[in-house]
Design a protein around this nucleic acid. Structure first.
Length: 572
RNA sequence: CGGGGUGUAGCGCAGCCUGGUUAGCGCGCGUGCCUUGGGAGCACGAGGUCGCCGGUUCAAAUCCGGCCACCCCGACCA
């Protein structure tokens, strides 16, 4: 492509409404433009990058035996009523009525549509396993879209759905997708990790998230420093602490005045104690009533763990009124002593406290010298806290470390959830009707591009990994209008295209500084400068966007040298 | 949904508090000259419903009310 004929509206300044780096850079590089909150147009440069990711996704999905389809964005309510999600999906599902008053929605995901398709046309075990995928625009009406393509309302997703005759087959399908995803993100040139994820209320099944490592990521990845254990924050397990032998001759509990001291920090300072000597009592509410969860003072609650432990559908922190009803005291002074008609759960770490400070269930009162299991009873101990840096690994003797990441892919075993709800059955070898065992597998394609930028940029702009760069090479002829320069630049440009290398030629009548700044901003991996300095020796300059190294290359060797540079980059 | 903020030329902003000529600045854009290895210089120029609606006033970008859009923060703690 010749830049004079192309549309790359770069910006010198950061747009005011962009917060994260990928959003800023994609706007500045002229890749995207916002239409309305969370909805973006792709300009030619942005689309090229997107298509490169899509191509890699297609190749790997095809290689894994998945078949590409294309499903409707507009979906009828009836299907969603069948699966039960019309009621429970919530406001993220954009609903509307057609001219006949029929309820419709814009698809945020396609389990219903695909299950409907398959149940109509697949009747025999002979047609299984089956894996269908598509790359399509999804719409999710997020409460608060933000960060450009990272959390848009309209976005491009690859979603795949596997159908198997039995659990064993489903596991094979899952494994194939897991492998395909690893290939995809590796081929995109990204540093990533596959982490164990919470599989939610579907239960029993397992799930992995593929996270691109980036300090600016919204999610936290918990991994072990010595084994390959990795999980997201919700899922991350912590090795239980052994109960401690307590001194039975400890002092009796004593009530003390703690006026206005509600937080762990305030109470521990006021009583001259360590946060780890405190037990905090959190009152939660599920659909089956309130529950108290005890944590050691310095620890944070992991609600998902509690939710799964209780097999609760809904779980939230109790409001002020509920706390008062349950404990008799205001928020900030709850404690486990004297609580009645409420289940008391405690994190394992509570077992390792000999005497603790707890809330007095009365305004401005705490209780000291409290011994767990003696002065109050715990119904069940469990792992209820959020993992923190340095916690013991659940699989080995190592320690957990925390990193930031961006979720770009998710593989999930659905089991029979949709096939049962929507009656997707087949006949097995023995002629018996069976439900299909399903799996679903998503990749945020547009988010992958944004995540790549979050991971690969510097103060000058984007540093695209070559496989997903909109162009691999940018040629900048510099200096005064000069026929020799233009002719050689044009010749190299043609040779590169002939060699199958995406090349952009900056034939604009701009000063060199402008061309160099734009080249850095849009992040093309290799820049060739054709100028009279080099030509005097029969050479051009080749500059690596990432290392910023410049080498002088003989003109006949340019194509070969570029291939080598790109290959090295991908390998490293 | 709650809290905060912003809306003035394509982009970034000033002006508003304290109402008063033709509403400014930088970048970008157009033309010409000049310049050509890291966002040059000079000159001339185009481009504005001051988010929208209403009110106050002799007079509103500026004050008041309503609406809209966009951005940020939000159980984080017993």
């Amino acid at each position: 492509m010749k830049m004079s004929m192309y549309l790359i509206p770069t910006l010198k300044e950061d747009p005011a409404d962009a917060e994260v780096i990928s959003h800023k850079l994609m706007l500045r590089a002229g890749m995207i433009r916002k239409l309305t909150s969370g909805v973006y147009s792709y300009l030619p440069l942005g689309l090229r990058s997107l298509k490169k990711v899509q191509q890699i996704v297609r190749e790997e999905m095809d290689a894994a035996g998945a078949l590409e389809v294309f499903l409707p964005a507009v979906q009828p309510a009836e299907l969603w009523e069948e699966s039960g999600r019309w009621e429970i999906y919530g406001k993220e599902l954009l609903r509307f009525k057609d001219r006949h008053g029929r309820d419709c929605c814009l698809g945020p995901t396609h389990e219903e549509v695909i299950t409907d398709l398959v149940r109509r046309d697949v009747r025999s075990y002979k047609e299984l396993p089956l894996n269908l995928y598509q790359i399509q625009t999804k719409f999710r009406d997020e409460i608060r879209p933000r960060f450009g393509l990272m959390r848009g309302r309209e976005f491009i997703m690859k979603d795949a759905y596997s159908f198997d005759a039995d659990e064993k087959g489903a596991e094979t399908s899952y494994g194939l997708m897991w492998k395909a995803y690893s290939n995809i993100f590796s081929r995109c040139g990204l540093k990533f990790r596959a982490v164990e994820a919470d599989s939610g209320p579907i239960g029993g099944s397992f799930s992995h998230e593929f996270m691109v490592l980036a300090d600016t990521g919204e999610d936290t990845i918990v991994s072990c420093d010595s084994c390959d254990y990795a999980a997201n924050m919700e899922k991350a397990e912590i090795r239980p602490i052994e109960p401690m032998n307590r001194d039975s001759a400890s002092e009796a509990p004593r009530r003390v005045e703690t006026p206005g001291m509600r937080t762990i920090e305030q109470v521990s300072q006021f009583l001259n104690a360590q946060p780890s000597d405190l037990i905090k009592t959190m009152i939660l509410r599920s659909e089956s009533g309130p529950v108290a969860v005890l944590l050691r003072g310095e620890h944070e609650l992991n609600e998902v763990k509690v939710k799964n432990f209780l097999k609760a559908g809904e779980l939230e922190l109790a409001d002020e009124r509920t706390i008062e009803e349950v404990t008799g005291g205001p928020r900030g002074f709850s404690g486990p002593m004297g609580l009645k008609d409420i289940k008391i759960l405690a994190d394992y770490a509570v077992r390792a406290i000999s005497t603790a400070v707890i809330g007095g269930n009365e305004n401005d009162v705490h209780v000291v010298n409290v011994t767990p299991d003696k002065d109050f009873t715990v119904d069940q101990y469990g792992d209820f806290r959020a993992a923190a840096e340095g916690d013991p690994c659940p699989r080995c003797e190592g320690k957990l470390v925390l990193n930031r990441g961006i979720e770009v892919g998710h593989v999930f075993k659905l089991g029979l959830k949709y096939s049962k709800a929507m009656n997707a059955r087949f006949l097995d070898v023995d002629g018996n009707e069976q439900y299909m065992v399903m799996g679903c597998y998503g990749i945020g394609v547009s988010r992958t591009v944004a995540a790549a930028i979050e991971q690969n940029h510097d103060e000058d702009g984007i540093i695209f990994p070559p496989p997903i760069a909109p162009f691999s090479v940018l040629i900048t002829p510099v200096g005064k209008k000069d026929e020799e320069i233009d002719q050689i630049a044009g010749k190299i440009y043609q040779e590169l295209w002939d060699a199958g290398i995406d090349t952009l030629l900056d034939d604009r009548d701009e000063r060199p500084g402008v061309k160099f700044k734009d080249a850095d901003l849009i992040g093309v991996p290799v820049r060739i400068t054709v100028g009279k300095k080099g030509l005097a020796q029969g050479k051009i300059e080749l500059r690596n966007r990432r290392s910023k190294e410049v080498s002088m290359v003989e003109i006949p060797a340019v194509v070969q040298e570029i291939k080598r540079t790109l290959a090295e980059w991908n390998a490293g």
